[in-house]
Amino acid sequence: MFRKKVDTVHEALEGIQSGMTLMLGGFGLCGIPENLIRALAESSHKDFCCISANAGVDDFGLGLLFGAQKVKKMIGSYVGENEEFERQMLAKEIEVILTPMGTLAEKCRAAQMGIPAFFTPAGYGTEVAEGKEIREFNGKNYLLEMAYASDFSLVKAWKGDESGNLIFRGTARNFNPLMCGASTITVAEVEELVPTGSLDPNQIHTPGIFVDRIFQVSRYEKRIERRTVQNT
């Protein structure tokens, strides 16, 4: 199969330019491409449009991009827990578009699957529906949502092989598989990268055709946002 493996995060991000639109996987801090984000924050590029469910926390995840003033527009679903983001939003330094989470997922998936637009009931009758086409099906109203158009998808998987096949773990899957192949270039960072043929084809979540570059990171912080345990 085709070899998608790259050796460094810099190779993985080759071609990224200021002003590009990026999809970033993860829910909260779970399943985020933490190394790609860190490299972007340290890069000289800026003015990104970021599509991601959340905005990270001040000192981790997508928060690093806001801290480094790299974002000009944020498209997300829930954007709490990040003071610098809040400051930039209220100061109108960044544009923020809030999208229902299921709609955000589907707008990624539509881009991945070659569907230009779709009707959904979410947001009908609310600010989300403003300026969008409404159509009635079987007595219920739906609004037309467009697929995203994006330059780079940055995702995180648990395991992958050199052909780009991916396996996710637990709830770290979330938006990651939907963003693969939804941008011009898809980059996956994985905890374990194995030679082609080492993974059971039955267990692959995302086929390698949706992934352009894959690289292994040996050290992960995988920060927990709300450590909650049983009372003992």
Partner: peptide, 11 residues
């Protein structure tokens, strides 16, 4: 497990 959270981001 950091890969296992609920929608409130609790483990």
């Amino acid at each position: 497990d950091p890969d296992l959270i609920n929608a409130g981001k609790q483990t």
